[in-house]
């Protein structure tokens, strides 16, 4: 069981995160670049010292502050797999894999891991001779040979082509499940985060905004900030919903046509069309709906715009009717503080 509750001052904001991961459990931390995900991971790994809080793993307090006490890296029993595999260039693959193996039990894991990771034919190769995916597999094997209680994955699939990424993600999933070791993945790819774990943490600006089941969070993000991070591209104000509520629109949960029994019917004018894989991404502007009550998400008087991924080809300027399927309720947006009028002559 991992228990994390830390505050870490960074140059632009303070990273605050509190969550738990069960034995052999998993968590995916999702957020945009620079949101503080890696800082959380580095704090757990013991590379960054928090100003306040604790990291407890399996009943052992690894980090506590204040005063800041950090258990040394070799004693933390934590493995870290980063975007750069960090293989030792002077050692071949076999020596890299065996680097952390001390006990006979650890050395006994080597053949099985080598085979599971598909590295049998590469044992004599040097790191410079490996592809990105192969190097990451060696790095993963090197971590799993040791007696780790937790594996931290810091965007390990970034920089790989889609096929290698999917293959490595599947391999990581399988090997971690076999070893029954807890793991945390940080990623700025929502699909990757959801594929890794059914439990998702959304982080932005150093704040862990929400932690919950990944499907539930995407279906019901609660706040427009979380909704925006999870791919929602439109906030419907009460002037549109008609029931005094605020709701979020996800482009993938919009269908062409009026289906009032399935959601909220919206008619608007197409202001932008972009290709989106086999479909088109359409931006609709809803006329007469710009009576926003103000706030960051929908400034006073701003037109309401929603995005939809549609199959039918449309053109800019064309009126289109769509249905937002069961758009989730959102908390009312935070109002901007009123600006004091400037005094004349001052």
């Amino acid at each position: 069981m991992l228990d994390v509750d830390v505050e870490v001052p960074r140059s632009s904001f303070v990273v605050r995160a509190a969550f738990c991961v069960g034995v052999a459990g998993r968590l995916a931390l999702y957020g945009p670049s620079g949101s503080g995900k890696t800082t959380v991971l580095e704090t757990i790994a013991g590379l960054v010292r928090p100003s306040r809080g604790h990291v407890v793993l399996g009943g052992r307090t690894l980090t506590s502050a204040p005063p800041c006490r950090v258990v040394a890296l070799p004693d933390r029993r934590i493995g870290l797999l980063a975007q750069a595999p960090g293989l030792f260039a002077h050692l071949d693959v076999a020596a890299n894999l065996a680097y952390g193996a001390r006990s006979p039990a650890q050395r006994d894991r080597l053949p099985g891991l080598t085979e599971a990771l598909g590295l049998t034919g590469l044992l004599g190769a040097r790191p410079r001779e490996l592809s990105g995916g192969q190097a990451q597999r060696v790095a993963l094997g090197r971590v799993l040979v040791t007696d780790v209680d937790l594996v931290l994955l810091d965007e390990p699939f970034a920089g790989l082509d889609p096929a290698a990424r999917a293959e490595l993600a599947g391999l990581v999933d399988r090997v971690l499940a076999e070893r029954r070791v807890a793991a945390i993945l940080v990623s700025h790819e929502l699909g990757e985060a959801q594929g890794f774990s059914g439990r998702l943490g959304v982080i932005h600006g150093g704040r862990l905004l929400a932690v919950g089941g990944s499907a539930e969070l995407v279906r019901d993000p609660r706040t427009s900030e979380v909704a925006g991070l999870l791919g929602y591209r439109g906030v419907l104000p009460p002037t549109v919903t008609g029931d005094g509520t605020w709701r979020g629109v996800h482009p993938d949960r919009v269908v062409s046509g009026a289906w009032s029994e399935r959601g909220i019917v919206l008619t608007g004018c197409v202001v932008r069309v972009q290709p989106h894989g086999p479909r088109v991404r359409v931006t609709l502007e809803l006329p007469g709906a710009g009576a926003g009550r103000g706030g960051r998400e929908l400034p006073e008087g701003a037109p309401v715009r929603v995005e939809a991924h549609l199959d039918a080809p449309v053109e800019v300027g064309q009126p289109v009717t769509v249905t937002a399927l069961d758009p989730p309720l959102l908390d009312p947006p935070v109002l901007d503080p009123p600006v004091a009028p400037r005094q004349a002559g001052t």
């Binding site: 790994a45 590379l47 890296l73 070799p74 493995g79 680097y99 952390g100 001390r102 090197r142 040791t146």
Partner: peptide, 9 residues
């Protein structure tokens, strides 16, 4: 850092 996390002092 990697070597440290792999158990090296």
């Amino acid at each position: 850092v990697t070597a440290g996390l792999l158990g090296d002092r």
